[in-house]
């Protein structure tokens, strides 16, 4: 059986990298019974993921629940806790376990015509700016691109104005001074060429992007598989999941950091202790508010603690982490009924 796989991103993107690995794992786990062809972004881009899955154009797609926010209000709760993000692998596995076990989330994926098979995470976002940000006071009056509500709250707390700009417009907006900077992954320095316009990188840990659904599988495809095929498919997806985090939060940031350090026009700022404390205090307060209000948020926060400890013990090797997740998460799932 040949499955159509849609990473909904160009080849340079970490999602595409993950899908190339997944296609290999799938052939391996199924002994060549199941294979995949990857559809390029000219066929399925992010806005088309929902229709592609529901119409059968793609069997598996990289869906971002926050992009389809109206369809995933409960799953999105985990995204509202972005400021928790300090350890990418822990965030990714916490999101995976959360998505698999949270009933309202499972209902949302079902209504979307799909099945959830794990998540990945970005590195920890930092500040990329055109004016130096050394202390909390330096944030006053800055216009910063925000990738989501938690980042907007953080910016507003420190007197900056969060701005909504498409990620592809960051370069232009920064080069022209429409914004003073962005709250983003350091990888954007290379992938959106911000290295040509940013002058300062402030290493203040903000949070992660972890509400992904890496191998959103069409319900029809899933139901059409035998139990054995589902086991093989999940094994491949589970090995594929940490590949996104490995690429997005480790390999690419390492490249970007190297390029930034080699660039003499860019200063890397370590924030002062007072700034760091103030930022972390706000993050804690923000998370406490949300976990107090919402049971699902509390569940997710607990899972982040659990996986932070596991990742500390296992390390960052994707295959080792996948093996552990197989025990911790998938071993407890009944694949004859899961997702249906």
């Amino acid at each position: 059986q040949e499955l159509r796989l849609a990473p909904a991103a160009p080849p340079a993107h970490p999602a595409y990298y993950m899908y190339e690995h997944f296609a290999e794992f799938l052939a391996e786990e199924s002994g060549g019974e199941m294979t995949g062809t990857i559809l390029g972004p000219e066929v399925v881009a992010l806005p088309q993921v929902k229709d592609a899955l529901q119409s059968g154009l793609a069997n598996v797609a990289n869906g971002l629940p926050l992009y389809f926010a109206a369809d995933f209000p409960q799953t999105g709760v985990a995204g509202d806790l972005a400021l928790l993000g300090r350890d990418p692998h822990a965030m990714a596995w916490a999101m995976t376990e959360f998505g698999v076990n949270c009933e309202p989330c499972q209902e949302e994926f079902k209504n979307f015509g799909s099945v959830f098979l794990g998540a990945g995470s970005s590195d920890v976002y930092v500040l990329l700016t055109t004016t130096p940000v050394r202390t909390a006071e330096d944030l006053q009056g800055l216009r910063l691109r925000s990738g989501g509500a938690p980042y907007s709250r953080w910016a507003e707390h420190f007197g900056a104005t969060p701005v909504n700009i498409a990620v592809g417009d960051q370069f232009e907006a920064m080069s022209q001074g429409t914004i003073d900077g962005t709250m983003a992954s350091i990888v954007d320095m290379l992938s959106y060429r911000l290295i040509d316009v940013a002058e300062y990188v402030t290493m203040i840990p903000l949070g992660t992007y972890h509400v992904t659904s890496n191998f959103t599988t069409s319900l029809d495809t899933w139901e059409g598989m035998s139990l054995e095929q589902r086991e093989q498919f999940v094994a491949a997806a589970n090995r594929g999941d940490p590949q996104l985090t490995d690429r997005w939060a480790f390999q690419l940031p390492a490249e970007a950091t190297e390029a930034v350090e080699a660039n003499e026009n860019i200063e890397v700022i370590q924030p002062d202790q007072a700034f760091l404390d103030a930022s972390n205090a706000f993050a804690e307060e923000d998370i406490a508010t949300r976990t107090g209000e919402n049971e699902l948020a509390a569940d997710f926060a607990a899972l982040v603690d659990k996986w932070t400890a596991i990742v500390e013990e296992v390390g960052n090797d994707p295959e080792a982490l996948a093996a552990r997740a197989q025990e911790e998460i998938w071993a407890n799932v009944d694949l004859s009924t899961y997702g249906m």
Binding site: A45, D51, A52, S55, L57
Partner: peptide, 17 residues
């Protein structure tokens, strides 16, 4: 190439997007 449903899906999706 891949069936009627995906074809309708693209017909429904492309104009707006």
């Amino acid at each position: 190439l891949i069936g009627l449903n995906p074809a309708i899906g693209i017909l429904a999706n492309t104009p707006y997007s």
